[in-house]
Design a binder for these strands. Structure first.
Length: 853
RNA sequence: GCGGGUGUGGCGGAAUGGUAGACGCGACAGACUCAAACUCUGUUUCCGCAAGGAGUGUCGGUUCGAGUCCGACCACCCGCACCA
């Protein structure tokens, strides 16, 4: 018997698969296709366990579908543009391109030993000019189709680094790198008209049946549809030019409960006041300091300042309301102005109480008495609940909030007060980035012609290689020969657009490009027709909103510009979001009380101490692997010590795939031992002589076919942990059986087929050792024989008043009346009955018997 | 604050309303061995010598029967763009 030696055999099988072109995706019109895709990685340079888990899941699906006869597309590429490459260039010198392609080579080198069934011939990186050139071509088509436009937008500007900062790069109002105070600066930027698709993107979520409910809900909340009334207040004593304040409300039924009007610190009126009133300017500056997250606002203090302006109530000219600037009102949403109804809104209530504004109830609970004086708290029942309107103006006195809102909108429209509008919180997608390492936006700014698209024959607009990062700002902006060009339209001297695209653009269509990665157009209609859509998409929940929403929009935009068929506007048929790989954290504290973290290999886990020093460590369980906490396990070390099959099988074991899985050294070792055990059993069978049949042959084959059934259903249902459990079960049966060698051989061949998607190399070894033909990966998926799945006898538990008190084994087909007789003769039952009759006898055929006394 | 999720042995986790704890880790015992490692066999929810009893975050409900369904609560985790 040869020992289990993954290091040699894994390499051997990978070479053999490669030579045979087993994983090359073939456009075969005679076979059904299956497209499985894992979210492509950012080339950081090292793969981590999360990658191993993600790609193994995809690989299991891909190999399983391949066995089932599908023509499988399982590609891999690199999400290769983005800031880390520029940061590396700034910190360590070198060029983003060298850094990125170097990392890609490293990571490819680490991924290949995993033995994934990837068609590497389709690999590309988004920073390949071939890819981003096609992206530029699509951008021009989308510009032409009115899907892209320019407008001013406020950005975080770092005056020292001369760069725009992402929100996460602003720490306490300062640039993360320079430490300079961040300014709000307006720049003209490019936008995709995603908000035009808000309604459609929302409605289409209902059709995504095979997406996690959670993701659909997150997207729906993000799109944030609301129905409300838009109307205007006439102003009194307002600055010149502000005769009206436009307001949007989702609760027009509470208009008679208004006690103030609030405007955003960024509202045009606020900006006008800011210029003339230093006191107001100081308040507005204060408002802008606070955090802008929902959490910060909801839990933070509500601040307001009376502007001195008054407005007339639209339903009563004589009624005047004060206008406040308030820190909780967003300029981006609705009109940047609201009316406050403190009686029926928690935030307005807090605000009114603080500033001594009236609180007038509009409706009360149906059975309640009319309130005396000001209420003590806001009253906010669900909109579907019926309430009594004591200060209503439209619809019935007794009605639900929903009905009252509809009636109020109808009333206001009929009387010319306002109009019903549907609003979305989804904003247009700003794609301009003032960076070097991204896809150049292919337009030219001409003094005569304005913004001129680059000619398609001049694409790709390539990034220049001769750039440096020693000076602050965007190197494209100061590149003398790249930036200066001629107008494609009139030939006059002109300047290129120096903004590049958001990297979310790159990842919004890569799935389509994989169907024809080297086509001279963005996509090839024949290939997209055959391969689209992605049948199974797998990735992290962190992309639940932006990446997946942008991709859904982009597919629609690609369809509109002729780059995708109509069937592909929802590009991902099924989505699976996997959990993280976690690991314990080992922490000690230094003499200054600061935490010190230790690598897993430096710890004696049993003693709970640092090996070197013997210092006691605090063990923090189940934390996301992170370099700073040093609780990382390098997949390359695992592969070196145990082999890829062990790493793959471990990350599929135990935890359901959507949940986090805890990596433990003991678990990895146990997995490796199990694989060696299976190999040992297989070797014994391979070396054993095939004699006559044995008495336990049938029992073993039944176990094998039960395993086929369980593994198949588990893989179909994305329950890989249960598939692993079924494989363990079959291995245990094989270790214990007294069946003869031919039956054992048959069962072990089934075992190899069932294991193949998860531990493909060992499965090939076993398949070959048992004399299987060709590769197990091409052997087809075994089918469970229904005749072998049924048991002749069944053991029924006997319950007395719902508690198990005994059991009885009967033929499966025995009629209930016969079972009753046997049960009544059971010792425990006779004892419990004590001579009496049962009140009730429930026999669930094949499952259970319950005697009620 | 809002939205969502999760609570089952020492641990990861199984369980179409029908035997709670499959499978695995760990632990313990035994076999093999001069010995250890490897391997193999068994035990392992808790209380109890046993008979037996209790048990799926808590409290209640529906049911012949509840981890599963319903109601209230508690704890923890995740997401959040000032959402009118």
């Amino acid at each position: 018997m040869t020992p289990y030696a993954p290091a040699q055999s894994e390499k051997k099988w990978q070479a053999a698969w490669n030579a045979a072109g087993v994983f090359t995706a073939r456009h075969d019109p005679l076979r059904p296709k299956y497209y499985v895709l894992e979210m492509f990685p950012y080339p950081s340079g090292r793969i981590h366990m999360g990658h191993v888990r993600n790609y193994t899941m995809g690989d299991v699906v891909a190999r399983y579908k391949m066995s089932c006869g599908f023509s499988v597309l399982h590609p891999m590429g690199w999400d290769a543009f983005g800031m880390p490459a520029e940061n590396a260039a700034m910190e360590r010198g070198g060029h983003p391109k060298e850094w990125t392609y170097g990392n890609i080579a490293d990571m490819r080198g680490q991924m290949k030993p995993l033995g994934l069934s990837i068609d590497w011939s389709r690999e590309f990186a988004t920073c390949d000019p071939e890819y981003y050139g096609q992206q530029q071509a699509m951008f021009l088509d989308m510009l032409d189709a009115g899907l892209v436009y320019r407008k001013n937008a406020v950005v975080n500007w770092d005056p020292v680094d001369m760069t725009v900062l992402a929100n996460e790069q602003v720490i306490d109002g300062r640039g993360w790198r320079s430490g300079a105070l961040v300014e709000r600066r307006e720049l003209t930027q490019w936008f995709f008209r995603i908000s035009d698709y808000a309604g459609e993107l929302l409605e289409a979520l209902d059709g995504l049946k095979d997406w996690p409910e959670k993701v659909r809900l997150m997207q729906a909340n993000w799109i944030g549809q609301s129905r409300g009334l838009q109307f205007a207040f006439g102003t009194v004593n307002a600055p010149k030019g502000f005769d009206r304040i436009e307001c949007y409300t989702t609760r027009p039924d509470t208009l008679m409960g208004a006690s103030f009007v609030g405007i955003s610190p960024d509202h045009p009126i606020a900006r006008a006041l800011e210029k003339t009133d230093p006191d107001m300017a100081a308040f507005i500056a204060e408002c802008r300091k606070g955090g802008t997250t929902e959490e910060a606002i909801e839990t933070g203090e509500k601040l307001g300042r009376d502007t001195g302006i008054r407005v007339r109530h639209p339903l009563d000219e004589a009624w005047e309301l004060p206008v406040y600037i308030a820190n909780f009102i967003l300029m981006d949403y609705g009109t940047g102005a609201i009316f406050g109804c403190p009686a029926h809104d928690a935030r307005d209530f807090e605000f009114a109480t603080k500033y001594g504004l009236p609180i007038n109830p509009v409706f009360i609970a149906p059975g309640a008495d009319a309130p005396q004086g000001a209420p003590e708290a806001e009253y906010v029942p669900p909109k579907t609940e019926k309430v009594r309107y004591i200060r209503g103006y439209a619809g019935d006195e007794l009605q639900t909030g929903e009905d009252a809102i509809a009636a109020a909108i109808a009333f206001c429209e009929a009387n010319g007060i306002g109009r019903g509008v549907t609003n979305y919180r989804l904003r247009d997608w700003g794609l301009s980035r003032q960076r070097y390492w991204g896809c150049p936006i292919p337009v030219v700014h001409c003094p005569n012609c304005g913004v001129v698209p680059e000619k398609k024959e001049n694409l790709p607009v390539r990034l220049p290689d001769d750039v440096t990062f020693d000076k602050p700002g965007n190197p494209l902006d100061r590149h003398p020969t790249w930036r200066d060009t001629t107008c494609p339209n009139c030939g006059a001297p002109a300047r290129r657009e120096t903004d590049t695209m958001d990297t979310f653009v790159d990842s919004s269509w890569y799935y389509a490009r994989f169907t024809a990665p080297h086509a001279t157009t963005p996509t090839d209609p024949e290939e997209t027709e055959y391969w689209m859509n992605v049948d199974q998409y797998i990735g992290g929940i962190e992309h639940a909103i932006l990446h997946l929403l942008y991709s859904r929009f982009f597919a629609r935009a690609m369809h509109k510009t002729g780059h995708l068929p109509a069937k592909a506007i929802e590009p991902f048929n099924a989505l699976f979001t996997q959990g993280m790989v976690t690991h314990e954290i080992y922490k000690t504290t230094d003499t200054n009380g600061r935490p010190v973290y230790h690598l897993p290999e430096d710890i004696d886990r049993e003693a709970g101490v640092v090996k070197e020093t013997g210092e006691k460590v605090e063990i923090i369980p189940s934390a996301k692997m992170s370099k700073s906490k040093k609780n990382v396990v390098d997949p390359m070390n695992i592969i070196a010590s145990f082999g890829a099959d062990t790493a793959r099988f471990f990350v599929m074991s135990d935890s359901p795939p959507e949940r986090d899985v805890e990596w433990t050294a003991a678990g990895a070792e146990a997995t490796s031992k199990f694989l060696a055990r299976v190999w040992r059993i297989a070797s014994e069978i391979a070396e054993g002589a095939d004699g006559p049949g044995g008495a336990e042959d049938l029992a073993l084959l039944k176990a094998a076919h039960r395993a086929i059934d369980e593994v198949t259903r588990s893989i179909e249902g994305f329950a890989f942990n249960k598939a692993v459990a079924a494989i363990y079960g079959l291995a245990n049966a094989m270790a214990r059986t007294q069946a003869a060698n031919p039956a054992r051989r048959e069962a072990m061949q089934i075992m190899a087929q069932l294991m193949a998607p998860m531990v493909p190399h060992l499965a090939e070894d076993i398949w070959a050792a048992l004399g299987g033909e060709g590769f197990v990966v091409q052997a087809g998926w075994p089918k469970a024989d229904p005749a072998l799945l049924v048991e002749d006898d069944v053991t029924l538990p006997i319950q007395i008043n719902g508690k198990k008190r005994g059991e009885v084994t009967v033929p499966k087909t025995m009629p209930a009346s016969e079972v009753e007789k046997i049960v009544l003769a059971d010792e425990a039952v006779i004892k419990a009955l004590a001579g009496g009759q049962p009140r009730k006898l429930i026999v669930v055929p094949g499952r259970i018997v319950n005697v009620v006394i």
